[in-house]
Design a protein around this nucleic acid. Structure first.
Length: 344
DNA sequence: TCTGGGGTCCTCTTTCTC
DNA sequence: TCTGGAGAAAGAGGACCC
């Protein structure tokens, strides 16, 4: 029987800040952007204290400030969070060689081969993380990734939830569809229109219905997921598919020089990253988001993979010149795809 | 009124090639 | 030479994740 453990750090960024600034303990903390709520940016993490005021991640900083002006607003210190994340991943690696990293504050662990019980292993992981970092986490254990992830979210913070296939009807089906991985705001809204609110509602639809509504791939996925079925393996290693940089202007602009200068800088940063990681690219995409939030892309494939800055910048500007810049621009970005290495 | 940044994957359309 | 089709590749857009 497969046993998959999912671990999710509780309000990770906010908890790290609280640990190194003890005077912030029990205060509402909002981490995001430059840390200045009068500037453009969104909330990366809100402490549980700040969540009481309705502040949540992905919310504009300006909105968060309106809801909770007394909160302490801090910038994202990615390097520090990555350092702590490294300590945690090292602890996890001691429990199983099969680990999948899911971003900075989450991971899956295949513990099928462990001699320890679910409760034993979870308590031991929590204890070691608390001892070495002072932070708490929530853990879910289930026969697959899909259910383990749902489980870790069921009793936050500092939770431990074990789900078996026998629990699907009683514990998974009553949950809102939004709890399923892969169901976002758009799909949720669509499902609501056809009176599907819970995972159980979704499970009552036939596979043919779902495939008819959502297409072969997603329809099939939704059918299996709603029944708690997931055979996906843990991904322990992967190569990046693309490297990108983008920036949102503090105020929308129609000044071509400003857009061009930013594109040149983003291209340099992206190529630095590309070279630093030993890749070449054969596809350049430029992205423009207009003041009305409409987003357009223009892409060009290069015959020969390259990591040459001049060559890549030239293609990026060819893409930029294909846009009709009639509206003000709020974001410009560049993405390098078709990554390859020199190794044979 | 607001709506970041760095990714992946999927679908549909257009373009190329045979 | 023209035309059409099939299939692949490229381009564009969008949903979703953390």
């Amino acid at each position: 029987m497969r046993r998959v453990l999912h671990i999710d750090m509780d309000a990770f960024f906010a908890s790290v800040e609280e640990k190194r600034h003890p005077e912030l303990k029990d205060k509402p903390i909002v981490i995001g952007g430059s840390g200045d709520p009068s500037k453009r940016g969104v909330v990366s993490t809100a402490s549980y204290e700040a969540r009481k005021y309705g502040v949540h991640s992905a919310m504009p900083l300006k909105t968060a400030y309106r809801l909770c002006p007394q909160a302490v607003f801090l910038p994202v210190d990615y390097n520090e969070y990555a350092r702590i994340s490294g300590i945690i991943k090292n602890i996890l690696a001691q429990f199983s060689p099969v680990m999948e990293d899911v971003g900075i504050d989450e991971a899956f662990l295949d513990i099928s081969g462990s001699g320890m019980s679910n409760e034993q292993i979870a308590r031991e992981i929590k204890e070691r993380i608390r001892r070495q970092t002072g932070l708490s986490c929530s853990i879910g254990i289930a026969p697959n990734k899909l259910l383990a992830k749902i489980a870790s979210d069921m009793q936050k913070p500092d939770g431990l939830t074990v789900i078996t296939m026998g629990d699907i009807e009683s514990r998974i089906w009553p949950l809102p569809v939004r709890k399923l991985w892969g169901v976002g705001p758009k799909t949720e809204a669509f499902l609501r229109k056809i009176a599907v609110h819970t995972i159980g509602d979704l499970a009552s639809l036939s596979q043919d219905d779902l495939v008819g509504q959502f297409g072969e791939s997603y329809g099939h996925y939704l059918h299996e997921a709603s029944h708690g079925i997931d055979h996906s393996p843990l991904i322990t290693y992967w190569e990046p598919k693309s490297i990108s940089r983008e920036t949102t202007f503090q105020t929308d602009t129609d000044d071509w020089q400003t857009i061009a200068r930013n594109l040149a800088e983003l291209t340099r940063d992206t190529v630095d990253d590309l070279r630093g990681r030993g890749y070449k690219t054969n596809n350049v995409t430029v992205k423009i988001r207009f003041s009305d939030f409409q987003t357009q892309t223009r892409a060009k494939t290069i015959a020969e993979p390259t990591d040459n800055l001049e060559a890549i910048r030239k293609v990026a500007f060819q893409c930029l010149n294909r846009f009709e810049l009639k509206k003000k621009v709020r974001l410009v970005g560049v993405r390098l795809g078709g990554l390859t290495t020199d190794e044979v």
